[in-house]
Nucleic acid binder design. Structure first.
Lengths: 236, 236
DNA sequence: TTTTTAAATGTTTTTTTTACACTAATCAAA
DNA sequence: TTTGATTAGTGTAAAAAAAACATTTAAAAA
């Protein structure tokens, strides 16, 4: 038994995968392997199967491309223009993932011709994927100002200057080093390690790691790291 | 031409309609008119048609029930458990609407047996609608702490005590009257009228109205009205 | 005119945020 | 081995924002 006189449609999940290489924000794109728009740059996507939730579909698709499990994923609003896909009606649900770029395994992606692009040089994307990415970045800026989600982009050990560069890069601002480190250190999120990263200075910067417990408990709490006066949040 | 070997599914929109009667938060529910779960309490919903976006579907369905146009609507994350609807696979996209309860026209809804329930006394709902409502309330608390969206619940003219009651009710807290009014008045959101509402006191409380321009420009800005220390935001 | 009820209002204290500049560690070059 | 170059690390004072707190005012009813 089915609901009668209703039209069914495809539901797709598209993965917006952000990374940070220490200097720049990157997005992982693939060359679409099938018509239409074959070979054009695109988000990694796939159709939701009959026995899986949207979250499960997104995890499956992300894993297929990156080999990663247990990744930060956040569902965005659905894209539903009737003609957004010229082949047939497809409702697309984008997911934003933040990954440690170093954990991404290159070998696994060969099928998809995946490539990291700086978010300042994103190529033209198929369908409405460009809009998705733009909205995703807007929402990332919004959320990251209120919640410590950017840590998902970093390796296990990171330095305070790296952290600051990451925040400055997202909003294209300069922050005061003393105020920034004070805020971070007083947040209880960080644990100081004993060794230093000497790759970017002679003096070397101490490594820190995430206080995982505290982090998990406080992801949903509001913890302003960049303040209202530092940035202008375009939208939610 | 279609994508081959893919399964298509129904996509539904469900409307979570909140109102505020001056004292309590209310939700508008209907008695479902068809099987399964006929006559059970439910959110007003409907299937997305082939030629409409999700937003359009949500507007259509909300208008069908309430007669209202131009209502605040906010798309939530999709609900996608494969078996959430026992009849067949349906992906549900809930929309939260905030309406001025007085504008809702009773005559239009007779078909649906709609009824306002206090959010403290929500009946058992079909499928996963109960979860949707719970999440919607959580998100309403989150958003309302950061953006002046609760004004959507009020009539054109309202008083400061009404406004305070509305915020206190959402978080189940008491706020300091002096600090609250100072914050609101300094926000530039309000315009003082010359007349008073004498329905709830002898002295009467001055009416205020929304500075629409300023409001529209600042909806997406962060404007904390209740502060972190007043509330504990469960989640985002 | 007195009583009752809810509305309106200001100041002080505390906390948070901002602005601002020098010293420390290490490597490389002279 | 000394000097210079480079980035890391750190504290304090001023300003702004938030919190705590109690009395007066308007108007109707008694």
């Amino acid at each position: 038994m089915k609901y009668s006189n209703q039209t069914r449609m495809l539901v797709a999940v598209d993965c917006i995968i952000f990374g940070f290489d220490g200097t720049d924000y990157k997005i992982l794109l693939i060359q679409r392997g099938f018509a239409p728009e074959k070979e054009k740059w695109s988000l990694m996507g796939g159709f939701v199967q009959m026995d899986e939730t949207l979250d499960e579909a997104a995890k499956r698709i992300l894993n297929q491309l990156t080999g990663l499990h247990d990744v930060y994923m956040d569902q965005m609003s659905a894209f539903s223009q009737p003609l957004r896909d010229p082949i047939e009606r497809v409702i697309a649900v984008p997911y934003v993932s933040l990954i440690d770029i170093e954990k991404y395994s290159k070998q696994i992606n060969n099928d998809f011709h995946a490539k990291w692009f700086s978010i300042r040089e994103i190529p033209k994307l198929i369908f409405d994927h460009g809009d998705m990415v733009e909205l995703a970045l807007q929402q990332l800026r919004y959320k990251a100002a209120l919640h410590p989600i950017l840590f998902e982009l970093l390796p296990e050990k990171f330095t305070l200057p790296q952290l600051q560069t990451m925040y400055e890069g997202l909003y294209d601002i300069k922050l005061d080093k003393r105020n920034f480190t004070r805020k971070l250190l007083s947040s209880n999120l960080l644990h100081k390690e004993n060794d230093k990263d000497k790759s970017s200075s002679k003096k070397g910067a101490y490594y820190y790691s995430l206080n995982e417990d505290f982090y998990t408990r406080n992801l949903s709490n509001i913890l302003p790291i960049v303040s209202k006066s530092d940035i202008s949040l375009a939208a939610e």
